[in-house]
Design a protein around this nucleic acid. Structure first.
Lengths: 145, 145
DNA sequence: GACCAACGTACCATTCCGATAGGATTTTGT
DNA sequence: ACAAAATCCTATCGGAATGGTACGTTGGTC
């Protein structure tokens, strides 16, 4: 189980935006620089997030992106499902004439998606950022031991 | 979250073998035909499973594959991890100088792999086959309603 | 009206996935 | 002994997905 680069970059940008919330707009260029990401690629990701109503954008000088809602209101599962862009062609639910092996595979797939959805849906962006800053301060405090 | 074809085919073959356990060797060709899988591709998968000590094989006329142990002794998690053949280049555990975003991504990845491992490790091949045959008999009985 | 940044489109390079081809090796059956 | 049968092994390949770049357009600010 591995997240795509697209998802990873999107998450990293959103985490940055959440830490700045509710301050004003941040430009794609700056986000890319802070996290060391390819600028144009990131732009396309941010655009998708805006379309998914996770971000608001402002064009022109002094423009940029910001979260459309408070981090508390944003669910990580929703975010990632948007980023992964699952097309998953509806799985062709032809329940008839399934071999035993096919039934087994289907069962496992269901269990896996349920488990991952549970993990991701139980986490808000606020919680995620909280974990991160805790880990960060922990990391920082270790320099002084 | 989706299993690769390689994993899917391997599972389907193993489920068939588990249903026949502890009977004698089944040929790749027959497994491929029963499940409608490409023969040569399946062969390479079965070979990997043999190397992973899930199967025993016998060369020559009357040869084939069979489980190396009882289905009860085979863990689905082990099986799938073998089949996916994740190379996952050790994640480069450079704990220093991580951006907040990177920490967040790492956290999510850990949670996801933990959750999926939990699901898969809690299932033996015997249990999987049991689920399948139950579902199968249910499906069959519906023909007679 | 000059600049700025989001928006949009098209394209490209590389990797991975699923699969096939063609054989070499080992055992069984006659 | 020999032929058939099956696993075992290596190489290759087409196509799709992924990750990324280039270039231009639109809309907003000073």
């Amino acid at each position: 189980m591995r997240l795509s680069k697209r998802t990873e970059y999107g998450l990293r940008a959103v985490v940055q935006l959440a830490r700045l919330w509710p301050r004003t707009f941040v430009q794609s260029k700056d986000l890319a620089q802070q996290e060391g990401l390819p600028n144009k690629f990131l732009e396309s990701i941010l655009l998708a997030l805006r379309r998914g109503d996770f971000l608001e954008s402002k064009v022109g000088s002094g423009g940029g992106y910001r979260l459309s809602r408070a981090p508390r209101e944003i669910n990580v599962g929703d975010l990632i499902r948007r980023l992964e862009g699952r097309l998953t062609v509806k799985e062709e639910t032809s329940t008839d004439e399934l071999s035993p092996g096919e039934v087994a595979v289907r069962l496992i797939n269901e269990r896996l998606t349920d488990a991952t959805d549970d993990v991701l849906d139980a986490m808000t962006l606020e919680q995620l950022v909280e974990h991160v800053t805790r880990a960060g301060s922990l990391q920082q405090s270790m320099y002084y031991i």
